[in-house]
Computed example of a mutant assay.
Amino acid sequence: MENITESNLKKIDRVKLPFEFDVEALQKEVAKLAQRDFIYYSVIPLRAPAYQVDSSIPFPPPAEDYADGSWTDWLDTEELTQSPALLSVIDFFRENTTVNLVRLLRLEPGAIVKEHTDPTLALEEEKSMIRLTIPIFNNDQVEFILNDEIVTMKPGECWYLKLNDPHRVNNLGTEERINLTIDVIPNDWIRELISKSV
């Protein structure tokens, strides 16, 4: 779709972006990071608020709007700095936009994330961030459902999802699902990328 308007862009709820990452290298690193046991759901922070990474940095003052990411400085965690394949993915986005929160989201086999919305994670939200999702470990029994439609995402792909719309996840398989999520502040580069990928 050429010359998509800004108003139409804001209505789009899912876009596969035009690049894929080395899933084999990412899986090797993530497997090492994910060795600790967990029940239901687990988060491994790779880029986090500075005060969580460096105890010498004071807790930031209260913010009027946490969604814009400017309420704190963001630092890479030790898990990220020791993972060159993951770091190369984050650096790719850092070269083009502002990267804030980065996490590995783990969902155990048989687990269900109930339907919910993330009010600030969409292009149309003022001072928003958007979340880019790169599946690392997935299986055919994982259902990511956005606006009552399944979004089929394969390992190594990169997706923009409009997460202020209702979404839920069912891991009906026998293996855990792990997604890399990268929260970025929308700029002209990412908007154009999404527009051209529709």
Rank of each mutant, 00 (worst) to 15 (best):
M1P: 05
E2C: 06
E2N: 14
N3P: 00
N3Q: 07
E6I: 03
S7K: 15
S7E: 14
L9C: 07
K10R: 05
I12V: 14
I12E: 10
D13G: 04
V15Y: 00
P18C: 02
P18L: 03
F21W: 13
D22F: 02
V23R: 01
A25K: 07
A25S: 11
L26I: 08
L26Q: 04
L26K: 04
L26N: 07
V30C: 12
A31V: 01
K32H: 11
Q35T: 10
Q35H: 07
R36I: 08
R36D: 15
I39K: 14
I39H: 14
I39N: 13
Y41R: 14
V43W: 01
I44R: 13
R47E: 09
A48Q: 14
A48T: 09
A48H: 13
Y51G: 09
Q52Y: 10
Q52F: 12
D54W: 02
D54P: 11
S55W: 04
S55F: 07
S56E: 09
S56Q: 09
P58C: 10
P58V: 05
F59L: 13
F59E: 15
P60Y: 01
P61T: 11
P61V: 08
E64L: 11
E64A: 12
E64G: 12
A67L: 13
A67R: 15
A67P: 05
W71H: 14
D73V: 04
D73G: 08
L75G: 06
D76N: 15
D76M: 09
L80D: 02
T81K: 15
T81R: 15
Q82N: 15
Q82K: 15
I90R: 12
I90Y: 11
F92R: 11
T97Y: 00
T98P: 00
T98I: 09
V99E: 11
V99K: 09
L101T: 06
L104Q: 02
L104D: 06
L104G: 07
R106W: 10
R106C: 13
E108W: 04
G110K: 08
A111S: 13
E115P: 08
H116E: 04
H116Q: 06
T120N: 11
L123Y: 02
S128H: 04
M129H: 13
I130H: 09
I134E: 03
I134S: 10
I134G: 02
I136C: 05
F137E: 03
F137C: 06
N138F: 00
N138Y: 01
Q141A: 12
E143Q: 10
E143W: 03
E143G: 00
I145M: 11
I145G: 07
N147E: 12
E149I: 12
I150Y: 03
I150F: 06
I150V: 15
P155S: 04
G156T: 04
C158D: 00
W159L: 07
Y160H: 08
K162L: 01
D165K: 14
D165P: 00
P166I: 05
V169H: 01
N170P: 02
N171H: 04
L172W: 05
G173C: 09
T174M: 11
E176N: 12
I178W: 02
T181F: 02
T181K: 03
I182Q: 03
D188M: 06
D188W: 01
I190Y: 01
R191D: 01
R191L: 11
E192K: 15
E192L: 06
L193C: 08
K196Y: 05
K196R: 14
S197F: 04
S197R: 03
